[in-house]
Simulated scan of single mutants.
Amino acid sequence: MSSAAPSRPRGSEDLWLNAAAALLCEAGVDAVMVAPLAQRLGLSRTGFYWHFKDRKALLDALLMRWETRTTRPLLSRADAYAETICEALFNLCDCWLDRDLFDARMELAVRDWARADPAVAERLAQADATRRTAIAGLFRHFGYPETEAETRTLALLQAQIGYFALPVDDTHWMRIARIPDFVEIFSGRRPIESEVGRFMARHIEERVTP
């Protein structure tokens, strides 16, 4: 009597979720289907259902990952210690330079997804409102009037989302070099040398650390 064929591995939840996130960023939410994911991973579709009840559960997990990799780190940087508005904005700008702090590809993919899905659009609107509240709070903390704080917040957020969406050819170093000018534009104040130096030091250190 022949023995049964060995079962194919199920993979881990993170493995399926990583593949789904990559597919979302590459081809949009309509491409995130169980069969293509299984083929991409070389696993059986039954392995997917070991970790997720259905496709909706996977999409919910993708939205949770998006929030974890975009809104949460942005709020954390907004809450970081700063003695001036320039220092506070340098803290925020860490998100635009460090992919581990802010997943720009996933941000754009979810914004595209929201255009066709009202529930996702509502969730995105809530995230945007939370971000705006946190950043406007920084400006108010450093003495900006309410209306000006809101306007500067919108300018900052819209500029950064636009920067991610545009095909800009800047190298990482070029982008770092532009940040002090961005900070001056968004705050209306020129950062002092020590603020620029601390910002540059932590990003140069990140790039040279093995």
Rank of each mutant, 00 (worst) to 15 (best):
C95K: 03
C93G: 05
A109K: 10
C93Y: 14
A129T: 14
D54I: 06
D98K: 04
A129L: 13
F102P: 03
R72D: 09
L92F: 02
F48N: 08
T70W: 06
A119W: 06
A78D: 07
A104V: 07
A125Y: 01
A80N: 08
L59N: 06
R69E: 14
H51G: 02
A125T: 11
L97A: 08
P118C: 07
L58R: 09
R55Y: 01
A114S: 15
T71N: 11
G47W: 01
L58E: 08
A114P: 11
D60T: 03
C93L: 08
T130Y: 04
Y49I: 09
C95Y: 02
L108Q: 14
A129V: 09
R111Q: 14
Y49V: 04
L58Q: 09
R65C: 01
F102S: 12
M64C: 10
L75G: 10
R123W: 06
D100P: 00
S76I: 08
T130R: 15
C86K: 04
S76H: 12
T84A: 07
A109Y: 05
T84S: 15
L59D: 06
D128I: 09
S76G: 13
A129S: 15
F102V: 03
Y49K: 08
D98G: 02
A104N: 01
L74P: 00
K56Y: 03
E122F: 01
R65Q: 05
R123G: 10
N91P: 02
A80L: 13
L62Y: 02
L97P: 05
L89R: 04
A121P: 06
D112Q: 12
L62K: 00
L58S: 12
D79G: 12
R65H: 01
A129I: 11
G47Q: 00
L63Q: 13
W96T: 03
C95T: 12
L75N: 07
L59Q: 12
R69L: 10
W66V: 04
R111N: 12
A127D: 07
Y81R: 15
L75S: 05
L89G: 01
D79V: 07
L59Y: 00
R72P: 00
T71L: 15
A119P: 00
T70L: 11
D100M: 10
R65K: 11
D94I: 11
D94W: 07
R72S: 10
D100H: 14
L63W: 09
C86M: 06
L101C: 06
R99G: 14
T71S: 13
Q126S: 12
D117Q: 09
M64G: 12
L62C: 03
W50P: 00
D128K: 08
T68H: 14
D103T: 03
D79Q: 15
H51D: 01
D112N: 12
E107F: 07
D103F: 02
A104T: 08
T70P: 01
R99M: 03
E83Q: 15
A119T: 09
R77Y: 11
A114Y: 13
A116P: 00
D100L: 10
T70E: 05
L97G: 04
L92A: 05
D103V: 02
L101W: 07
K56P: 00
D79N: 15
L101A: 08
T130D: 12
A82R: 11
W96L: 02
K53C: 03
R69P: 00
D60M: 02
T71P: 03
A61K: 09
